[in-house]
Protein backbone atom coordinates (compact mmCIF):
# COMPACT_ATOMS: atom_id res chain seq x y z
CA UNK A 1 0.00 0.00 0.00
CA UNK A 2 1.45 3.33 -0.97
CA UNK A 3 1.18 6.16 1.50
CA UNK A 4 -1.30 8.81 0.42
CA UNK A 5 0.40 12.16 0.43
CA UNK A 6 -2.50 14.53 0.91
CA UNK A 7 -5.74 14.79 2.80
CA UNK A 8 -7.80 14.34 -0.36
CA UNK A 9 -5.87 11.16 -1.02
CA UNK A 10 -6.76 10.08 2.51
CA UNK A 11 -10.47 10.48 1.82
CA UNK A 12 -10.38 8.08 -1.12
CA UNK A 13 -8.17 5.64 0.79
CA UNK A 14 -10.76 5.62 3.58
CA UNK A 15 -13.35 4.03 1.32
CA UNK A 16 -11.02 1.05 0.81
CA UNK A 17 -10.25 0.33 4.44
CA UNK A 18 -13.14 -1.47 6.11
CA UNK A 19 -11.85 -1.20 9.67
CA UNK A 20 -11.37 2.56 9.36
CA UNK A 21 -14.75 2.96 7.71
CA UNK A 22 -16.57 1.02 10.44
CA UNK A 23 -14.74 2.97 13.18
CA UNK A 24 -15.71 6.23 11.54
CA UNK A 25 -19.33 5.08 11.35
CA UNK A 26 -19.32 4.08 15.04
CA UNK A 27 -17.68 7.34 16.06
CA UNK A 28 -20.14 9.46 14.07
CA UNK A 29 -23.08 7.50 15.52
CA UNK A 30 -21.81 8.03 19.06
CA UNK A 31 -21.24 11.74 18.43
CA UNK A 32 -24.73 12.07 16.93
CA UNK A 33 -26.22 10.26 19.95
CA UNK A 34 -24.36 12.58 22.30
CA UNK A 35 -25.44 15.69 20.41
CA UNK A 36 -29.07 14.61 20.21
CA UNK A 37 -29.21 13.39 23.83
CA UNK A 38 -31.76 15.99 25.03
CA UNK A 39 -34.17 14.94 22.28
CA UNK A 40 -33.71 11.18 22.05
CA UNK A 41 -33.13 10.32 25.73
CA UNK A 42 -36.30 8.92 27.35
CA UNK A 43 -35.62 10.85 30.56
CA UNK A 44 -33.67 13.92 31.65
CA UNK A 45 -31.20 12.52 34.19
CA UNK A 46 -30.30 16.01 35.45
CA UNK A 47 -33.91 16.70 36.48
CA UNK A 48 -34.49 15.46 40.03
CA UNK A 49 -38.29 15.63 39.52
CA UNK A 50 -38.18 12.96 36.81
CA UNK A 51 -36.35 10.45 38.99
CA UNK A 52 -37.87 8.02 41.47
CA UNK A 53 -35.46 6.33 43.89
CA UNK A 54 -37.88 3.41 44.09
CA UNK A 55 -36.84 2.54 40.52
CA UNK A 56 -33.18 2.12 41.54
CA UNK A 57 -31.08 -0.79 40.23
CA UNK A 58 -33.62 -2.28 37.85
CA UNK A 59 -31.93 -4.62 35.33
CA UNK A 60 -31.93 -4.14 31.53
CA UNK A 61 -34.97 -5.20 29.50
CA UNK A 62 -33.57 -8.64 28.52
CA UNK A 63 -33.00 -9.71 32.14
CA UNK A 64 -35.74 -11.10 34.39
CA UNK A 65 -37.24 -8.60 36.83
CA UNK A 66 -36.90 -5.64 34.51
CA UNK A 67 -39.26 -2.76 33.94
CA UNK A 68 -40.22 -2.05 30.33
CA UNK A 69 -39.93 1.71 30.92
CA UNK A 70 -36.16 1.35 31.22
CA UNK A 71 -34.57 -0.32 28.19
CA UNK A 72 -31.09 -0.61 29.73
CA UNK A 73 -32.23 -0.68 33.37
CA UNK A 74 -31.63 2.00 35.99
CA UNK A 75 -28.67 3.14 38.07
CA UNK A 76 -28.24 3.42 41.84
CA UNK A 77 -30.36 6.57 42.00
CA UNK A 78 -33.22 5.28 39.86
CA UNK A 79 -32.22 7.11 36.70
CA UNK A 80 -32.84 5.54 33.31
CA UNK A 81 -29.43 4.10 32.37
CA UNK A 82 -29.84 4.70 28.63
CA UNK A 83 -30.52 8.41 29.22
CA UNK A 84 -27.65 8.66 31.70
CA UNK A 85 -25.27 7.01 29.22
CA UNK A 86 -26.35 9.40 26.47
CA UNK A 87 -25.77 12.40 28.71
CA UNK A 88 -22.54 10.85 30.02
CA UNK A 89 -21.29 10.40 26.46
CA UNK A 90 -22.03 14.08 25.96
CA UNK A 91 -19.99 15.05 29.02
CA UNK A 92 -17.08 12.74 28.10
CA UNK A 93 -16.95 13.97 24.52
CA UNK A 94 -17.24 17.63 25.54
CA UNK A 95 -14.33 17.29 27.93
CA UNK A 96 -12.25 15.21 25.51
CA UNK A 97 -12.74 17.55 22.56
CA UNK A 98 -12.53 20.70 24.68
CA UNK A 99 -9.29 19.61 26.32
CA UNK A 100 -7.73 18.68 22.98
CA UNK A 101 -8.83 21.98 21.43
CA UNK A 102 -7.06 23.78 24.26
CA UNK A 103 -3.95 21.59 23.93
CA UNK A 104 -3.86 22.18 20.19
CA UNK A 105 -4.29 25.94 20.52
CA UNK A 106 -1.50 26.30 23.07
CA UNK A 107 0.76 23.73 21.45
CA UNK A 108 0.39 24.91 17.85
CA UNK A 109 0.97 28.53 18.83
CA UNK A 110 4.08 27.72 20.86
CA UNK A 111 5.35 25.15 18.38
CA UNK A 112 5.01 27.47 15.39
CA UNK A 113 6.82 30.29 17.15
CA UNK A 114 9.60 27.96 18.31
CA UNK A 115 9.99 26.36 14.89
CA UNK A 116 9.84 29.56 12.86
CA UNK A 117 12.12 31.72 14.94
CA UNK A 118 14.45 29.00 16.21
CA UNK A 119 17.46 30.01 18.27
CA UNK A 120 17.08 31.00 21.88
CA UNK A 121 13.30 31.29 21.85
CA UNK A 122 13.11 27.75 20.49
CA UNK A 123 15.54 26.42 23.09
CA UNK A 124 13.67 28.10 25.95
CA UNK A 125 10.22 26.96 24.82
CA UNK A 126 11.36 23.39 24.21
CA UNK A 127 12.99 23.15 27.67
CA UNK A 128 9.66 24.33 29.07
CA UNK A 129 7.98 21.56 27.08
CA UNK A 130 10.44 19.01 28.47
CA UNK A 131 9.63 20.10 32.00
CA UNK A 132 5.91 19.78 31.37
CA UNK A 133 6.37 16.39 29.66
CA UNK A 134 8.31 14.96 32.58
CA UNK A 135 5.17 15.23 34.72
CA UNK A 136 2.69 12.52 33.91
CA UNK A 137 -0.58 14.14 32.83
CA UNK A 138 -2.77 11.96 34.98
CA UNK A 139 -0.57 12.64 37.99
CA UNK A 140 -0.69 16.41 37.45
CA UNK A 141 -4.43 16.27 36.94
CA UNK A 142 -4.98 14.26 40.11
CA UNK A 143 -2.92 16.69 42.19
CA UNK A 144 -4.46 19.84 40.66
CA UNK A 145 -8.03 18.60 40.94
CA UNK A 146 -7.40 17.45 44.49
CA UNK A 147 -6.14 20.94 45.29
CA UNK A 148 -9.17 22.55 43.65
CA UNK A 149 -11.49 20.30 45.61
CA UNK A 150 -9.70 21.15 48.81
CA UNK A 151 -9.66 24.91 48.19
CA UNK A 152 -13.26 25.42 47.15
CA UNK A 153 -16.60 24.21 48.45
CA UNK A 154 -18.11 21.02 47.06
CA UNK A 155 -20.93 23.04 45.54
CA UNK A 156 -18.54 25.32 43.67
CA UNK A 157 -16.52 22.34 42.53
CA UNK A 158 -19.55 20.50 41.19
CA UNK A 159 -20.65 23.54 39.22
CA UNK A 160 -17.27 24.05 37.55
CA UNK A 161 -16.12 20.40 37.32
CA UNK A 162 -16.50 20.35 33.52
CA UNK A 163 -14.47 23.52 33.02
CA UNK A 164 -11.74 22.53 35.44
CA UNK A 165 -11.37 19.10 33.82
CA UNK A 166 -10.97 20.71 30.39
CA UNK A 167 -8.43 23.19 31.74
CA UNK A 168 -6.38 20.64 33.67
CA UNK A 169 -6.22 18.01 30.90
CA UNK A 170 -5.82 20.74 28.28
CA UNK A 171 -2.90 22.52 29.87
CA UNK A 172 -0.99 19.36 30.83
CA UNK A 173 -0.61 17.99 27.29
CA UNK A 174 0.36 21.00 25.14
CA UNK A 175 3.99 19.85 24.58
CA UNK A 176 2.73 16.96 22.43
CA UNK A 177 1.48 19.48 19.89
CA UNK A 178 4.30 21.96 20.36
CA UNK A 179 6.95 19.34 19.62
CA UNK A 180 5.17 17.94 16.58
CA UNK A 181 4.48 21.34 15.06
CA UNK A 182 7.99 22.56 15.81
CA UNK A 183 9.54 19.54 14.09
CA UNK A 184 7.51 20.11 10.91
CA UNK A 185 8.02 23.86 11.05
CA UNK A 186 11.80 23.43 11.32
CA UNK A 187 11.75 21.32 8.16
CA UNK A 188 9.34 23.57 6.28
CA UNK A 189 10.90 26.95 7.02
CA UNK A 190 14.00 26.15 4.97
CA UNK A 191 11.92 25.54 1.84
CA UNK A 192 11.72 27.98 -1.01
CA UNK A 193 8.11 29.06 -0.66
CA UNK A 194 8.86 30.48 2.77
CA UNK A 195 11.88 32.24 1.32
CA UNK A 196 9.65 33.60 -1.45
CA UNK A 197 7.09 34.86 1.03
CA UNK A 198 9.83 36.59 2.95
CA UNK A 199 11.18 38.23 -0.22
CA UNK A 200 7.67 39.47 -0.99
CA UNK A 201 7.91 41.37 2.28
CA UNK A 202 5.24 39.54 4.29
CA UNK A 203 5.47 39.84 8.07
CA UNK A 204 6.49 36.87 10.21
CA UNK A 205 2.97 36.40 11.60
CA UNK A 206 1.47 36.14 8.12
CA UNK A 207 4.16 33.72 6.97
CA UNK A 208 3.75 31.58 10.09
CA UNK A 209 0.00 31.19 9.96
CA UNK A 210 -0.82 31.55 6.26
CA UNK A 211 2.15 29.74 4.72
CA UNK A 212 3.95 27.59 7.27
CA UNK A 213 1.11 26.19 9.37
CA UNK A 214 -1.08 24.82 6.55
CA UNK A 215 1.86 22.65 5.52
CA UNK A 216 2.22 21.18 9.01
CA UNK A 217 -1.40 20.05 9.24
CA UNK A 218 -1.19 16.30 8.65
CA UNK A 219 0.93 15.44 11.72
CA UNK A 220 -1.37 17.67 13.78
CA UNK A 221 -4.36 15.69 12.57
CA UNK A 222 -2.69 12.36 13.40
CA UNK A 223 -1.82 13.23 16.99
CA UNK A 224 -5.19 14.91 17.51
CA UNK A 225 -7.05 11.62 17.26
CA UNK A 226 -4.72 9.93 19.73
CA UNK A 227 -4.91 12.95 22.03
CA UNK A 228 -8.72 12.84 22.01
CA UNK A 229 -8.63 9.17 23.02
CA UNK A 230 -6.13 9.93 25.79
CA UNK A 231 -8.13 12.90 27.05
CA UNK A 232 -11.32 10.83 27.24
CA UNK A 233 -9.47 8.08 29.12
CA UNK A 234 -7.95 10.63 31.50
CA UNK A 235 -11.35 12.19 32.18
CA UNK A 236 -12.88 8.78 32.84
CA UNK A 237 -10.06 7.86 35.19
CA UNK A 238 -10.35 11.13 37.11
CA UNK A 239 -14.11 10.81 37.41
CA UNK A 240 -13.68 7.22 38.55
CA UNK A 241 -11.41 8.43 41.35
CA UNK A 242 -14.08 10.92 42.39
CA UNK A 243 -12.05 13.92 41.22
CA UNK A 244 -14.03 14.57 38.05
CA UNK A 245 -17.68 14.94 37.19
CA UNK A 246 -20.10 14.75 40.15
CA UNK A 247 -22.65 11.93 40.29
CA UNK A 248 -25.49 14.39 39.72
CA UNK A 249 -24.05 15.15 36.26
CA UNK A 250 -22.17 11.93 35.54
CA UNK A 251 -19.73 11.36 32.71
CA UNK A 252 -19.13 7.75 31.62
CA UNK A 253 -16.29 7.42 34.15
CA UNK A 254 -18.43 8.67 37.02
CA UNK A 255 -21.22 6.25 36.02
CA UNK A 256 -18.80 3.31 36.02
CA UNK A 257 -17.58 4.40 39.44
CA UNK A 258 -21.11 4.54 40.87
CA UNK A 259 -21.84 1.10 39.43
CA UNK A 260 -18.68 -0.39 40.93
CA UNK A 261 -20.20 -0.15 44.41
CA UNK A 262 -23.18 -2.30 43.42
CA UNK A 263 -21.12 -4.81 41.42
CA UNK A 264 -20.94 -7.20 44.36
CA UNK A 265 -24.69 -7.22 44.87
CA UNK A 266 -25.12 -8.39 41.27
CA UNK A 267 -26.07 -5.11 39.55
CA UNK A 268 -23.41 -5.47 36.87
CA UNK A 269 -25.12 -3.36 34.23
CA UNK A 270 -24.53 0.00 35.93
CA UNK A 271 -20.77 -0.39 35.39
CA UNK A 272 -20.77 -2.64 32.34
CA UNK A 273 -23.00 -0.72 29.94
CA UNK A 274 -21.37 2.72 30.33
CA UNK A 275 -18.03 0.88 30.24
CA UNK A 276 -18.99 -0.67 26.92
CA UNK A 277 -19.93 2.75 25.53
CA UNK A 278 -16.62 4.17 26.74
CA UNK A 279 -14.53 1.36 25.22
CA UNK A 280 -16.43 1.60 21.94
CA UNK A 281 -15.78 5.33 21.78
CA UNK A 282 -12.07 5.09 22.57
CA UNK A 283 -11.55 2.08 20.31
CA UNK A 284 -13.17 3.86 17.36
CA UNK A 285 -11.01 6.94 17.89
CA UNK A 286 -7.84 4.84 18.30
CA UNK A 287 -8.49 2.75 15.19
CA UNK A 288 -9.12 5.88 13.16
CA UNK A 289 -5.96 7.44 14.56
CA UNK A 290 -3.90 4.37 13.67
CA UNK A 291 -5.27 4.33 10.17
CA UNK A 292 -4.68 8.05 9.76
CA UNK A 293 -1.08 7.69 10.90
CA UNK A 294 -0.42 4.84 8.50
CA UNK A 295 -2.00 6.76 5.64
CA UNK A 296 -0.45 10.18 6.20
CA UNK A 297 2.97 9.12 7.46
CA UNK A 298 5.56 8.83 4.72
CA UNK A 299 7.62 6.54 6.95
CA UNK A 300 4.93 3.93 6.62
CA UNK A 301 5.55 0.48 8.06
CA UNK A 302 4.35 -2.32 5.89
CA UNK A 303 2.82 -4.91 8.14
Amino acid sequence: MKAASSLSGAASALAQDKVALVSLAILLTLIAMALLAPWIAPQNPYDPAAIDVLDAELPPAWVAGSDMRFLLGTDTQGRDLLSTILYGLRASLTIGLGAVALQAMLGVLIGTFAGYFGGRLDAALMRLADVQLSFSTLMVAIVLLALLQGLFSTEWYHRYALVSLILVIGVAEWPQYARTVRASALAERKKEYIEAARVLGFGPLRIMFRHLLPNCLSPILVISTLQVANAIIAEAALSFLGLGMPITKPSLGALISSGFETLFSGAWWISALPGLALVLLILAVNLLGDWLRDTLNPRHYRG
Binding site: A229, G253, F260, L278, V279, L283, N286
Partner: peptide, 18 residues
Protein backbone atom coordinates in the same frame (compact mmCIF):
# COMPACT_ATOMS: atom_id res chain seq x y z
CA UNK B 1 -3.09 -4.53 21.59
CA UNK B 2 -5.21 -1.73 20.18
CA UNK B 3 -8.16 -3.09 22.14
CA UNK B 4 -5.95 -3.21 25.22
CA UNK B 5 -4.98 0.45 24.82
CA UNK B 6 -8.63 1.40 24.49
CA UNK B 7 -9.81 -0.19 27.74
CA UNK B 8 -9.10 2.14 30.69
CA UNK B 9 -7.17 0.46 33.49
CA UNK B 10 -9.94 0.76 36.08
CA UNK B 11 -12.39 -0.87 33.69
CA UNK B 12 -10.04 -3.83 33.22
CA UNK B 13 -9.91 -4.14 36.99
CA UNK B 14 -13.69 -4.05 37.34
CA UNK B 15 -14.08 -6.61 34.58
CA UNK B 16 -11.57 -8.97 36.20
CA UNK B 17 -13.22 -8.56 39.61
CA UNK B 18 -16.64 -9.30 38.17
Amino acid sequence: SILGISVPVFLTGILLIY
